[in-house]
Design a protein around this nucleic acid. Structure first.
Length: 247
DNA sequence: AAAACACCCAACCGCAAGGAT
DNA sequence: GATCCTTGCGGTTGGGTGTTT
């Protein structure tokens, strides 16, 4: 249906303006209504993608910093091709950016890292990637209310890695889920010895108070080489927007 | 100068998951 | 429980641009 007569291909400036106005007015979401509201002859998917990958104001453009590449490689070792998750840890970067970068630079990056004698990116054949399924947030899960950037020590006994139930919207459920998932995986893999897996958070208290960039805290924690998992906060399975709401 | 090639990135497609009815 | 609808994700493609021959 929506493929009938809808415009495809590159976006023109006028379309960008219309889409931006629409999002400004109505906010993100309800993508099925966006083409109508914006007066665009585009399918909802196209509108959503254009906004998320290009028009969103917090999108960072330009070269990936070394920190970002470093983090990307480590996260990829851990998560595999979970581009949206990886992008969620790279403020301002979109999943598409990360994916494109990976595909076009992956070989170069491997060579570069090996030449510099840094901890080598692990190949997939050697590293078992944790692949949590994509998670959705139900309306009952008030993610935007999660202002805690540094999470207190959990005294939670997590006995299962099952996802938090959407019927019990505890703010820390997602964190706990991540931690338990990673902790379980850690029992199979000696992360602290290999140093190959990243379990840390961008969003530490330091990050929140803008003392440091998000990458700094994470890399310090990795390089610190503490025996214990250094996570202060769990991963958030959220695109950048949601992450940014937490700061 | 121009053709061929390589690279990058925006956009599309198909699918899976979750919510609503 | 079944079905439909919407959203979000990963894989892939195609066009534009830069580089090489």
């Amino acid at each position: 249906m929506e493929s009938l007569g809808v415009r495809k291909g590159a976006w023109i400036q006028e379309e960008d303006v219309l889409l931006r106005k629409c999002i400004d007015k109505y906010g993100e979401g309800k993508w099925h209504l966006v083409p109508l509201r914006a007066g665009l002859n585009r399918c909802r998917k196209s509108c959503r993608l254009r906004w998320l990958n290009y028009l969103k104001p917090d999108i960072k453009r330009g070269e990936f910093a070394f920190d970002e590449v470093d983090l990307m490689i480590r996260l990829h070792n851990l998560l595999g091709n979970r581009w949206s998750l990886i992008a969620g840890r790279l403020p301002g970067r979109t999943a598409n950016d990360v994916k494109n970068y990976w595909h076009s630079h992956h070989l170069k990056m491997k060579v570069q890292f090996q030449e510099e004698g840094r901890d080598k990116p692990q190949t997939h054949s050697k590293t078992k990637a944790i692949k949590p399924h994509p998670r959705k947030f139900s309306k009952a899960l008030p993610r935007f209310e999660l202002k805690t950037t540094a999470v207190d020590t959990f005294d939670t006994q997590v006995s299962t890695s099952s996802k938090p139930s959407s019927t019990s919207p505890q703010p820390n459920d997602d964190i706990i889920w991540w931690e338990s998932l990673l902790a379980e995986h850690a029992q199979e893999t000696d992360f602290s010895a290999s140093g190959e897996v990243l379990i840390a958070s961008l969003w530490t208290e330091e990050t929140a108070t803008q003392k440091k960039g998000p990458m700094d805290g994470m890399i310090e924690q990795i390089q610190g080489g503490e025996g214990d998992f250094p996570f202060d906060v769990g991963f958030w399975d959220t695109p950048n927007t949601q992450v940014n709401h937490l700061i």
